[in-house]
Amino acid sequence: MDEKQIRRDRLRYSKNKTSSGLALLAIVLNVFYFVSIYKSDVGNYYYTWLTGVSIIFNLVFMLTVFLCSEGVKNYHLGYSVTLIVVGVIQFVRTRIIPKKAYEAVVILADQETKVMTDAQHTRIIIYLIASGALLILAGVIGIIKTATLRAYEKELETKTAA
């Protein structure tokens, strides 16, 4: 077996830990995101109905990504695609609560005060974007590895049949 074939053959016995690990890391970054966004630097917060939706989304997000991290580990194509979709959603999310909260103003001691400082906004945007990027990367790696493995298995089947 040459190097390339050994690398492909290894896929038969090893799990896709890279994608799985990246997905789990994305969950961690998402946790940093929601911990940061619910804790305002200026001691107040911009509450709307979106906050409730956001909390529910975060829970669903974590559950979905965790399931996908297990599925992608075993080379299931569907889970890889799901990771990419969820990753894209993470990018979209930067335009919803973070943007609204950043633009929001509250009156504190008769003074207009911004709900979110520049630093906090930058931080949560980084968390979301990094989380989304990791998910997309995990999904892409998952798709590539799954396709490689399937092709290799087909090749082996053909050889065995011959």
Partner: peptide
């Protein structure tokens, strides 16, 4: 090396 490990295990 992972490839060496693979060959030894097989």
């Amino acid at each position: 090396n992972k490839n060496v490990i693979h060959q030894k295990v097989l």
